[in-house]
Computed example of a mutant assay.
Amino acid sequence: MATNVKICGITNVDDAERAVELGAWAVGCIFHRPSPRRCRPAEAARIAAAVKRRTLVAGVFVNHPLDEIVRLHDRIGFDLVQLHGDEGPAFCSEVGRRTGAKVIRAVRVGDAGDVRALDAYRSVDFHLLDSARPGEPVDPVLLRARRADIPLLLAGGLTPENVGAAIVAAEPFAVDVASGVEAEPGRKDPDVLEAFFAAVAETDAALAPVPEPAAVAEPGPAAAEADA
């Protein structure tokens, strides 16, 4: 199965359009105010209007009040809501109920306990594992602690150079990248973005099962008599 790609930290329509052209499954707009990739609501609305029906749009939140998430959803129309703070299972369920969007619960992984903590989030649509160490990929050994069968998004320090190894190790539903394809915070590098998608496609092709050759049918009696 092909690995999906989510491009996060989108702050402008041009980068969103480029991601869609390359085949992005989703683009993410971050609303966490301290983030250097924060997207202002007015620009997020323009991004969503430009790419709706061609890709999914995610709103990324960190410990935001529920009413604020709902208000921004009503204004922008997210397909996905990504919760990246201390939100508990009940809060995640309420976000899904009040917005109608699919919910991604993200955690930063420093040890196996962080991975197992996601098991409590059974009502969300996706789990996302990010690295506790900025710029570094998640240790693939830690992924073995995951028991849930909820689709996995893998983030954390991914680049065109290492995304292939990450896919082989984790077999995720999707990979999620922000800083690894940037020219500067909030601005994507077109060449690196293209290289990332190419690396994902190359890895998927290498992992695809080789079809077995079709069996050759033995000639029946009638064919044998005709040859005689």
Results as ranks from 00 to 15, higher is better:
residue 46 R to A: 11
residue 172 P to W: 15
residue 217 A to F: 06
residue 216 V to G: 10
residue 48 A to K: 15
residue 78 F to G: 08
residue 38 R to T: 12
residue 17 E to I: 02
residue 94 E to D: 02
residue 108 R to S: 02
residue 172 P to A: 15
residue 76 I to R: 07
residue 43 E to N: 05
residue 157 G to I: 10
residue 149 D to R: 01
residue 2 A to W: 13
residue 14 D to H: 00
residue 171 E to T: 12
residue 198 A to K: 05
residue 173 F to M: 09
residue 11 T to A: 11
residue 64 H to T: 03
residue 32 H to M: 07
residue 102 K to Q: 09
residue 8 C to P: 00
residue 79 D to C: 03
residue 87 E to C: 14
residue 161 E to L: 01
residue 12 N to F: 08
residue 45 A to L: 08
residue 49 A to S: 12
residue 168 V to I: 13
residue 124 V to T: 15
residue 226 A to V: 12
residue 216 V to K: 12
residue 27 V to A: 06
residue 132 A to Y: 02
residue 59 G to K: 11
residue 43 E to S: 12
residue 170 A to I: 05
residue 6 K to H: 07
residue 90 A to M: 08
residue 176 D to N: 08
residue 109 V to I: 15
residue 131 S to T: 04
residue 174 A to W: 09
residue 25 W to I: 08
residue 192 V to Y: 09
residue 31 F to K: 15
residue 181 V to P: 02
residue 109 V to G: 12
residue 157 G to Q: 04
residue 203 T to W: 06
residue 137 P to Q: 05
residue 116 R to A: 03
residue 96 G to K: 14
residue 37 R to G: 02
residue 140 P to A: 03
residue 120 A to I: 01
residue 157 G to Y: 12
residue 217 A to L: 08
residue 220 G to C: 14
residue 185 P to N: 12
residue 171 E to N: 09
residue 84 H to T: 15
residue 134 P to I: 04
residue 42 A to H: 09
residue 142 L to C: 04
residue 222 A to F: 07
residue 37 R to F: 08
residue 93 S to E: 07
residue 39 C to W: 13
residue 146 R to M: 03
residue 99 T to K: 13
residue 205 A to T: 10
residue 112 A to H: 02
